[in-house]
Design a protein around this nucleic acid. Structure first.
Lengths: 207, 207, 207, 207
DNA sequence: CATGAATGAGAATTCATTCAT
DNA sequence: AATGAATGAATTCTCATTCAT
């Protein structure tokens, strides 16, 4: 019976062993993706790498895409946390210093497993049903909003939702590009910062 | 390294008929990609859609990826031409007006076959061996350099190669995002312009 | 196949619980089969449906086929009992009336869970090692023999074992067909009766 | 893209080679089914047995079920032809003689590859969407109607569509049963004939 | 006895690519 | 050059069964 393609987890890992297995699967998937790319990324390889059986992969993920999505989720979560820290730490600092902290956080998360993360971003396009925005996205917007609100005065003009979205798009693109070009962290940081501050302070015309 | 996977065309379509066949194949590939996505994109489908045989596809393209790359090339060529026109037309106009023309050109090319082009951009990542930058890219940079050179004074500071690259990255990301969000052309144009002018005029600190 | 003649249950708590579990498993299997067909019939689904663990299923049935056979047995038992009742009730009635009672019994048992029973009949073919006739079959023959013996005179000719077998085959096929065609109970009954009486009274030539 | 499950042939074997391949596939499937039963019947085995590749099987049959259905069709066609011959040959003969010819035809077709045909009948249930009656079925009814019409007088009462259906059901069931019991052809013929003549001449009550 | 996580052989199906015609 | 039948490696996913807890 062709049950409609599930995409959420098939079974919640309630017990200790289960949770471990899920972690093993995710890490194995990550490693396969890193080592062999999308090309060599298949469920059997993941199982083998994880030292478990394919069946176990399917015990927790209804299909390969669900596994990939979980990996993407893990990445987004990591990004979110780093940014959260950065926003918290930047309390009381200047706007530029604050932005620098957030940018550095982004660069770090992306750089950590650059190869893997690049692939995941690619897959995100294919897997995200366009409409479905990840929960992490709106949380990220929130964080940026908080950060900017602190410097309302300095910026001198309201920063609406669209602008925040644009800022995120811009910095994400620049960070990706910087990593692809293998720029040094400081150089990358400088360029991203310029783009962001430009957007914030630059001339604006009426809608 | 063992036998290297060919990626360039196997045979130059010198003859008239050949060139026609290549065009048929490319258009068929485009349509399959639009209609069925990456999922349903396969050489047999392309051949069928084009009313030719698979064998013929392989007569002109050594493998599927080469076909996809040709499609990407076609897209980049179209973009380049539109931007060329825009740059030419903008001669004598103000910086803002000029940028607007270029941005509009980009939006048009991307929107024309939005679905298809989005997929192609995704595939570009996978197919471009990182190092290999498309010829079109440097030409595009050239064009932007020319445009900006006209307004050197107005900008008030030199715009080096890196900055041009950044500008291209930013506008590309914003255009993509605008199309994905299905923004109206004017709204999209406004937001892209803001990002670009911000980058150009914004504060800069020393490297 | 468990012992058929159960002695009234003594206080045997362990066995009591076991019997309950077996019943739960059988009913769960039946429901899965009804709801999802042979396609979706698997031991894990049965366990889940029954609110027990797969392990428990294997505690009572050595393998999936054994479970299916038990289900078939349950069905045959039900049929046998209904027919027993019908034969008992028909005591003293005319041949036609008696046959009608038996036919009605058959139709009822089959109709009760038509979908399920149809599937079980299909599986019977695959699972019954050809030679192995179910115990129920010979009991059924016995019952029919008893019924017909009562009307020896009326029939006017001896009804041997083969004939009884044929009668069972015919009525089973007709009942199946009637249910598949979704005939009304009376219409189905009429047609089955005609086939049976025809067989009984029709012309016969020598062997 | 989950194209809805096709069931008809994927490609019509127009050319010589193609038609041969289809024949090879069908015969290989038949042999696998005979030798290993439904259990061991899988497309890889079929391909191997046919000395071709799995891909070729899927070139002509969209999926395994379609292949099985083709096999069923082949069987039904054979049955139809034999019965056609029998009906033609029986022209001018007595009713009993005619029925005997048809019954013999049925027995022959079924016996020819008894194991295979039994399995196919089992699969028919699963594969035929209940409603969809095979074309062959109505043709068969037609033939029986023609045969009986010749003996209208002798039968002494009209034989409507339902009755013809019943006759077919009955003889099919009896033939199946005879083969399963491994009866001799004459014995089987005698018993089937009795059932049929009984149905035709037996007492009938009002609807 | 019960549990349910883990196993892994096995089966269906796809599709890039080849090559005889 | 074109054709399109054939290939078969590769991949996804299922599910009966086991066994440590």
């Amino acid at each position: 019976m062709p049950a409609k393609r599930r995409i959420k987890a098939r079974k919640q890992p309630l017990q200790q062993r289960s949770r471990e297995t899920v972690a093993v699967i995710l890490e194995a998937a990550a490693r396969v993706l890193e080592a062999r790319g999308l090309e060599g990324y298949n469920t059997n390889a993941v199982a083998e790498r994880g030292g478990i059986s394919v069946g176990s992969v399917y015990q927790y993920f209804p299909n390969k895409d669900a596994l990939t999505l979980a990996l993407i989720g893990r990445f987004e979560q990591a990004l979110l946390e780093k940014v959260q820290d950065a926003v918290a730490t930047s309390e009381g600092k200047s706007l530029t210093a604050s932005l620098n902290l957030v940018i550095r956080a982004q660069l770090e998360v992306h750089a950590e497993r650059a190869g893997l993360n690049r692939i995941l971003e690619t897959e995100e396009d294919r897997l995200r049903p366009a409409s479905a925005e990840p929960a992490a996205a709106s949380e990220l917007k929130q964080l940026v909003a908080v950060l900017l609100a602190r410097h309302r005065r300095e910026i001198g003009r309201p920063v609406d939702d669209d602008a925040i979205e644009d800022l995120i798009v811009i910095s994400r693109a620049m960070v990706d590009h910087a990593l692809q070009k293998d720029l040094s962290r400081p150089a990358a940081g400088r360029r991203v910062l310029r783009a962001i501050e430009g957007y914030l302070h630059g001339p604006v015309r009426d809608a």
